[in-house]
Design a protein around this nucleic acid. Structure first.
Lengths: 336, 336
DNA sequence: TTGTATGCGTTATCAT
DNA sequence: ATGATAACGCATACAA
């Protein structure tokens, strides 16, 4: 059927071993023979059989990306960053989504990884997720994106700082009744959400402003959730004059709720999000932008490095990428 | 190192052939021995070596998804549909993005496909894309999503109908000066864009309304592009009273342009898009919604079917999924 | 129903 | 620098 390494070897009058070495750029191959072999391989339209190569070498040349969502902005954007790096490196990208605690029925990821990838990249699962633990227990080289775990390499932003920046921005504008839209009730430790809340707390404390528990609402990191949360805040006796939404998508929903109530973002109530979502500019939303494609890119590069350095149990580096506050018209000075 | 089929065979007191058959659910295996083998495999924590299996069988158990973008809504949403089906089928999903005509430097997809996938799914490339042609020339079972080509199975919406529905909606509201925001200048045939334009033309013709070339603008299917296009339309001597944007994202940009000019969607100028983008509800955008996750799901299922039916050169079915008009407040009756 | 034996296409070890 | 050859782990045609 297809051309094999043997065909190339015969055509070149050398052994398959030499062809293998030549084509892979290994040393100890005469320059002229290498060149000849390369030309013949090209002429014959030879492509290596990945299965055979993998079986013989033990390496798969592919890595898995494990994510709870594919179609959401943050996740697809991380994924695009990962993909660009892996493509350049000639590594196959296996995509697998996993169920979320609430989510739909899916196969657990760990069994699907065994013997088929050299490493894994995990996007924004909860640190206490059992599935995540199973993946880590596989002992594969793994990097985390958007979450941290002790002893595991990761790439994130400084979420405490992000929460602080957003909150401080509102405080600087003179706001004191500051609401916050978080994800859900129970925040597990070490999550982005928890860290952002800590930043919120710290900024409020530094400013000497008491946190009003009535001004907290759950938005579940979705647009409808943000809308509901904001509606809840607006129907309070004393609504906030400014709101910190822990994601742009929740902020979008919040803006919608404001409009439904005849309120205008910025003019009537200030709101700031986190993400730097594509749509944030469109909606004139102030936000703490994170370099999402870079999160994916850098995590992928770190993982590749880990794969290439045999044995070197890297020091489980935690990489933090910088965020920046983008001020738009959704946040304005407090004007009673 | 790892457990092999031999270990399972020895432990069960049978041959590796029987283990292979038993574990893959092939017939001609005694029920009791199969059960015993399964239990032992489980106890031993045996997982099959994909490389070895692929090498021996010739099948890879994986399919590639080829897409020009990963982080854009349409593409990531299609991808999520594809992924759910492939995961259920136990097929590996190899993700590879390709360069667009304008796009960044990337490796051509075809060489990366050879000998490593059983089939390919292509999302919304141009029918005249050379890369697409190379992929098709590979002779792999392939399904197209969001584009059609003679002789190749595909899953799309009826784009002519989509264009017609959107336009007819505006006409029904009494509009006559109807603008249109398309992708770019040269529309290749058989593309969604061209078809949507044909639907636009047909609806206008049926209504006896002349098409004003001055009311056409290019939005390049992006938000900024849509914004520019709308700005161009608004700075005409006689701006349109309604606009058909060929994608929701271009409509989003258009809405922004309208706001910049102090105009309100629906009240001042009506606008309708195509997609049913997550954000369309948030922005109260009327749109012709397409079942995007279903496009991916159904294409994946069709491809799986094709892979399972050996030899059956399926009749290159073109599947069209239904769209539906969602009316929101961005479109209102013409009121001079 | 089960076992035997060969082939799948490389890589890597050990010679030369 | 190059060659010979034994793995690599499974699938499958053929026998039994």
């Amino acid at each position: 059927m297809a051309i094999t390494i043997k065909d190339v070897a015969d055509a070149a009058g050398v052994s398959t071993a030499t062809v293998s070495r030549a084509l892979r750029g290994l040393p100890n191959v005469d320059a002229s023979t290498r060149e000849r072999i390369q030309k013949i391989a090209l002429d014959l339209d030879y492509v290596i059989s990945p299965s055979a190569s993998r079986l013989a070498s033990g390496r798969t040349g592919s890595i898995a990306v494990i994510t709870p969502y594919i179609a959401r902005w943050y996740f697809s954007t991380v994924l695009s960053g990962v993909e660009s790096v892996l493509q350049s490196a000639g590594i196959d990208l296996l995509l697998m989504s996993v169920s979320t605690p609430e989510g739909q029925h899916r196969l657990p990821p760990a069994p699907r990884l065994r013997r088929r990838v050299d490493g894994a990249l995990v996007i924004a699962l909860s640190p206490r997720d059992a599935q995540l633990q199973e993946v880590l227990d596989l002992g594969l080289p793994t990097s985390l994106i958007g979450l941290t775990m002790p002893g595991v390499p990761s790439v994130t932003i400084d979420d405490v700082m992000a929460g602080r920046m957003a909150t401080q921005h509102l405080i600087n504008l003179g706001h004191e009744r500051i609401g916050v839209i978080t994800g859900a009730a129970v925040g597990s430790p070490f999550t982005a959400e928890t860290d952002r809340y800590r930043g919120f707390e710290a900024a409020m404390k530094d400013a000497g402003i008491a946190i009003d528990p009535m001004l907290e609402a759950y938005g579940y990191f979705t647009i409808p959730g943000g809308e509901q949360a904001m509606t809840a805040l607006l129907t309070q006796r004393k609504p906030p004059t400014a709101v910190f939404a822990m994601s742009d998508e929740m902020a979008f929903g919040a803006i919608r709720a404001m409009r439904s109530h005849g309120l205008q973002p910025g003019r009537d109530i200030s709101i700031v999000g986190v993400d730097g979502h594509d749509m944030s500019e469109l909606l004139d939303l102030s936000t703490v932008a994170q370099p999402v494609p870079d999160l994916g890119r850098i995590a992928a590069e770190a993982l590749l490095l880990q794969l290439r350095s045999p044995g070197t149990e890297s020091a489980a580096e935690e990489i933090h990428l910088p965020t920046r506050l983008i001020v738009r018209s959704s946040t304005r000075p407090y004007a009673p």
